[in-house]
């Protein structure tokens, strides 16, 4: 299984570039894991891209999983109520106190 890492932000400002790259990676591999640990900012456009990738994977019968969701990603997935729909294993962050 191929692992790709997304670093920095996943927002309207760079989704176009990410889309090309991630879509190509998904098409080139039967199974792909996206490591989201390094995503420090995500907006709805970023989320939309993740949804698209998930859909594309299920349409083409590929295995796509997101892993190591960073805090901003978790928050947004939670807000959009997609955590369970994405069906990825989540590591819930410890309370930092």
């Amino acid at each position: 299984m191929e692992t790709l890492e997304i670093k920095g932000e996943l927002t309207i400002f760079n989704v176009a570039g990410h889309k090309e790259k991630l879509l190509a990676a998904l098409r080139a591999n039967a199974a792909l894991e996206l490591n989201l640990a390094g995503v420090d900012e995500i907006d709805t456009a970023g989320l939309q891209l993740l949804i698209l990738l998930k859909r594309e994977a299920s349409l083409t019968s590929k295995k796509l999983s997101f892993a190591m969701h960073s805090k901003p990603v978790l928050d947004l997935l939670e807000l959009a109520n997609l955590t369970t729909a994405f069906g990825d294993q989540l590591v819930l962050p410890q309370t930092e106190e």
Partner: peptide, 9 residues
Amino acid sequence: EMDPETCYL
């Protein structure tokens, strides 16, 4: 066809 900068949601 999806334009990642367009909102479809």
